[in-house]
Amino acid sequence: MTRGSLILILLLILVFILPADLQAQCSICTKTAQQLGERPAKALNTGIIYLGLTPFLIIGYIGYRWWKNNDN
């Protein structure tokens, strides 16, 4: 088993272990979103998680490519 496939398997296991309903808002944003209703509160939470995860995915991809190119 190569190192890359081991990392991929570990990342997949980590994704399945993480809880499905993460709370991304601060307490003030949570109260404001709850006043709008359940659906907008969930949408706001999903948007915050999406915006927070995107830079990590981009940096992770760049780091992986850099590591792969220096592994020669």
Rank of each mutant, 00 (worst) to 15 (best):
M1D: 05
M1A: 13
R3F: 07
G4I: 14
S5P: 04
L6Y: 06
L8A: 15
L8K: 06
I9A: 14
L10F: 09
L10G: 14
L10W: 08
L10R: 12
L11V: 03
I13L: 11
L14E: 12
V15C: 13
V15G: 04
F16Q: 00
I17P: 04
I17V: 15
L18W: 09
A20E: 11
A20I: 02
A20W: 05
A20K: 08
L22K: 00
Q23A: 12
Q23C: 08
A24N: 03
A24S: 06
A24D: 00
Q25E: 10
C26W: 11
S27C: 03
S27F: 09
S27W: 12
S27M: 08
I28K: 02
C29E: 15
C29T: 10
T30C: 04
T30K: 11
T32L: 14
T32C: 00
A33F: 10
A33C: 07
Q34L: 14
L36V: 00
L36A: 10
L36Y: 05
E38Q: 13
E38I: 15
E38R: 02
R39Q: 12
A41N: 04
A41G: 03
T46S: 07
T46Q: 09
T46P: 04
I48A: 07
I49L: 09
I49C: 01
G52W: 10
G52V: 05
G52D: 07
L53A: 13
F56C: 09
L57C: 03
I58M: 03
I58Y: 00
I58H: 03
I59R: 00
I59P: 01
I59A: 03
I59Y: 00
I59S: 07
G60K: 03
G60A: 02
G60Q: 01
Y61D: 04
I62L: 06
Y64C: 02
Y64S: 02
K68V: 13
N70P: 07
N70D: 10
N72I: 15
